Amino acid sequence: MGYLNKVVLVTGGGTGIGRATAMLLAERGAIVAINYSRSAVEAEETAQAIRQFGGRAMAIQADVARNAEVVSMIEQIVKSFGTIHYLVNNASITRYIAMDDLEAVTEEAWDDLFAVNVKGMFNCARAAAPYLKAGKGAIVNVGSIAGITGKGSSLPYAVSKAAVHGLTKSLAHALAPDIRVTGVAPGAVDTRWWAGKEEQMRALIRHLPLDRISTPEEIAALIAAVLEQPSLTGQIVTVDNGQTM
């Protein structure tokens, strides 16, 4: 199928997995809308990097937890590029709370994580759906092995990612047969999240069957492959160097 002149929205596209995905798809000919909430500098740098090699990209601000902002974002993308063919729901946040410290889990933590990580993905899918449907498009939701193992940077984060996996399956039912919806569940990925935690990262690597952690570019390559796979929907594809094997 290819990505030449296909319009792709990547949420949280200025850093990490989102940036790598935006860059890869643009290198393959896609027109990329790079959503950000607070990472304006990084998102614009990503868009500029794409333009430098002749690609087409725009950085666009929206808090995905706010439906009105999402609707406005979709309208701006369609006005600029005509439609949307693919959606990569990557934007998410976390709170660092010890898993066994239940008293530290506040109502605000639950509300914030579910608003962005779950409701935000739904908002984007709903707003983009009419355009994706017209082009027989696809959605990839970026989950996490935290949503499979129940362990992560905090209890609400792990539960929110389990909800992302459930949302993926529900959207796959709701949007079939015109839109495919698939999830990817990365394990540890070498992003800025590990800054200052290098020893923790090395300790984790020693316990992984493949003796390594993933790069953002590797996850981006999987996302690109999943978007193009015509027989795939409703699945959660785990990529974790054997951590959950």
Rank of each mutant, 00 (worst) to 15 (best):
S153I: 11
L132E: 00
D100C: 06
G55R: 07
G137Y: 01
S72I: 03
N89L: 09
N67T: 09
I50N: 01
K133P: 03
L102N: 13
M99P: 03
E44S: 08
E108D: 12
G135Y: 13
F81S: 08
Y96F: 10
V70R: 09
Y131P: 02
I139V: 15
Q48S: 14
D101S: 13
V140F: 00
A65V: 09
D100S: 10
A68N: 14
G54C: 09
A134K: 15
A127Q: 04
E45L: 09
K119C: 03
R38M: 13
R66K: 15
K133A: 14
M73N: 03
N141L: 09
D111E: 15
I50S: 01
I74L: 04
L113M: 14
G147A: 12
A43D: 03
V142L: 14
Q76L: 05
S144K: 10
A128R: 02
G54S: 10
G135T: 13
D63H: 13
I50T: 02
A47W: 01
Q61T: 11
A115E: 01
W110E: 05
V78C: 07
A127F: 03
H85K: 00
G150E: 01
M73Q: 10
V105I: 15
G120K: 01
R126I: 05
V64H: 05
A127Y: 02
F81C: 07
V140G: 02
A68Q: 14
I93M: 13
E44M: 07
M121P: 00
K136I: 05
G54Q: 09
L102Q: 08
V70F: 06
A59P: 14
F81G: 02
T149H: 07
Y86G: 02
A62T: 10
A127N: 02
A128I: 05
V88Y: 07
N67C: 06
D63A: 11
M99Y: 10
Y96W: 09
A47K: 01
E44A: 08
V116C: 06
